[in-house]
Design a protein around this nucleic acid. Structure first.
Length: 492
RNA sequence: GGCAUCGUGGCCGAGUGGCUAGGCACAGCUCUGCAAAAGCUUGUACAGCGGUUCGAAUCCGCUCGAUGCCUCCA
């Protein structure tokens, strides 16, 4: 029997502001859409946190036995020109100056995006559609919205008529805004543009001569509006109404609000049953953003080449760090926090290793069933990974007690413990054992084993000067010697 | 200015109307030739001020502060 039949999952729905019991539209199947990246520069760590949050959600849904269709788009159209001008990103600017094809920029950063997410051990989505691959569908939906009277054309551009829409529907229900308030607030700074109202947004934009990405349409050459692709691709692959729509908190308004408006205007149906918003990752207390320069690239963390951190951190350690915070909370990145997470990560992984040769007995002092359910309870409560991790450390404590002979566990329970632990640590949280780069390390390891052997011989001979010299010299090189009960190991 | 979220022990970070996660650091202990590593043990915190209540850090109000959105942004 699928786990979802016995586990009651509750999800915080941004639309209602409440935790609601999750029941998919079609039993056993879940449709999930997440707004993906705009590929005009390298993904920064903040982007990664959002996608990682939804990776956790995807993984847990799979773990519960749901068949999940997970759609995450790639935005590769529309705003390349503007961003190259405004942003600090030198590569895309250079690409433009050298008249490199825009799709070359897209390709480069799409590859970077995939590489980076793979390092963080994110599962690929079921479908990863691109905006440029759905121009036709976008044009079609614009026609529908125009036919229904919720859009108007001006000089080759088409705008969504928010005021008209608001007469029949409710604009702003996701972000808790009222159109009247918005109009009152923006009246003075209304830009002199073609829109009837500042709140209106573009469905199709006329391409100016210098705009490099352009497609023919009934309204002339142009490109699709910023919010349209998500409406088109989500409903195309998941249906007019689907279960979960996710994205970063910063997309709640206006992006997701506009998506709702577009979908309702064209299908007359609320498109999404559960809206989920992942919160921001901050750096020095401020949001990480490409545009402000307050950002850190994943590779800069993995290599240690940055000015903010004292050392390099493995991708899985960064993942563990992020999993220790709930996805709806703001998380502030710092060297101290990462260092603490790294130690905790090792403690967890070391305990997983101990699992292999633990003594078993005739009774269990460890209540496996109750503990396992506490793990599920944590995840069932809006994917609360931090609480799950707390439970995992309860198991770590038990493992040590059993190892020291202070507690007993039956063979069957040990197997269950091991299985559950592996399931949550590797399948649900998506953690991995951090491994060193192979190749050179084989030689190094052999050399170290020899040094350890020589040192231990010196210790037996009470030649502590030699023993300590080896230990201290290695330590200066960043290699730590660890004398344990069962022999000496090292780490670097 | 408007809307939203948040303010937890040295740090990070959960949670809850009464039964007080977890990680890291610190301290003590065990182990060790000495260390380190590892393991064990210990922490009554919830921005401030009022109110509701038998009881609030958890609910309500106000104040202060932080962050996000209101323009592309995960």
């Amino acid at each position: 029997m699928a786990l979802y039949k016995t586990q009651t999952l509750k999800i915080h729905n941004s639309l209602t502001g409440k935790k609601e019991e999750f029941t998919p539209l079609h039993e056993g199947h879940v449709g999930m859409y997440v707004c993906g990246p705009t590929v005009y520069s390298n993904v920064h760590l903040g982007n990664c946190r959002t996608f990682m949050s939804f990776d956790l959600i995807f993984r847990y849904l799979l773990h519960l036995g749901y068949k999940v269709r997970y759609v995450r788009n790639i935005t590769d159209a529309g705003h390349l020109e503007d961003d190259a001008d405004q942003g600090e990103d030198k590569i895309s600017k250079k690409a433009r100056l050298e008249k490199i094809e825009p799709m070359e920029v897209v390709q480069r950063y799409t590859v970077d995006f995939h590489n980076t997410l793979q390092k963080f051990n994110l599962l690929p989505p079921s479908i990863e559609p691109t905006a440029t691959g759905h121009i036709v569908e976008q044009i079609e939906i614009i026609k529908v919205i125009m036919d229904k009277g919720y859009a108007y054309e001006k000089n080759g551009s088409v705008y969504f008529d928010v005021v008209k829409f608001n007469e029949d529907y409710q604009y702003g229900k996701l972000s808790g805004r009222k159109l009247e308030d918005m109009i009152a607030n923006t009246r003075e700074l209304a830009a002199q543009d073609e829109k009837n109202n500042p709140q209106d947004f573009a469905l199709w934009k006329r391409a100016e001569p210098q705009h490099i990405m352009r497609w023919p349409s009934p309204w002339g050459e142009g490109f699709p509006g910023w919010h349209l692709e998500c409406t088109v691709m989500s409903t195309k692959y998941l249906g007019e109404t689907f279960d979960i729509h996710g994205g970063g908190m910063d997309l709640k308004f206006p992006h997701h609000e506009c998506e709702i408006a577009q979908a309702e205007a064209s299908n007359d149906k609320s498109p999404v049953r559960y809206w989920l918003h992942a919160n921001m990752l901050t750096l020095n207390g401020k949001k990480m953003a490409k545009s402000t320069g307050n950002n850190l690239l994943p590779n800069e963390i993995f290599s240690g080449e940055n000015t903010l951190l004292s050392k390099a951190f493995a991708p899985t350690v960064v993942r563990f760090f992020m999993m220790q915070a709930h996805y709806t909370s703001i998380l502030d990145l710092s060297d101290e926090a990462l260092l603490a997470a790294e130690k905790g990560y090792h403690r967890l992984m070391d305990a997983m290793e101990l699992l292999h040769n633990l003594p078993t007995g005739v009774t269990s002092g460890f209540d496996l069933g109750a503990w396992r359910q506490r793990c599920y309870d944590a995840m069932n409560d809006d994917f609360n990974a931090p609480v799950l991790i707390a439970q995992l450390f309860e198991a770590v404590k038990a493992i040590h007690l059993i190892r020291e002979g202070k507690q007993e566990i039956t063979a069957a329970d040990l197997e269950g413990l091991s299985e559950t632990l592996h399931g949550f640590v590797f399948d649900v949280l998506g953690l991995e054992r951090a491994h060193r780069e192979s190749g050179e390390s084989e030689k190094l390891d052999g050399t170290l084993e020899l040094l350890v052997e020589l040192r231990n011989r010196a210790r037996t001979d009470k030649d502590y000067a030699t023993a300590d010299r080896i230990r201290d010299a290695l330590n200066d090189l960043g290699i730590q010697i660890k004398d344990g009960k069962d022999g000496t190991t090292f780490s670097y």
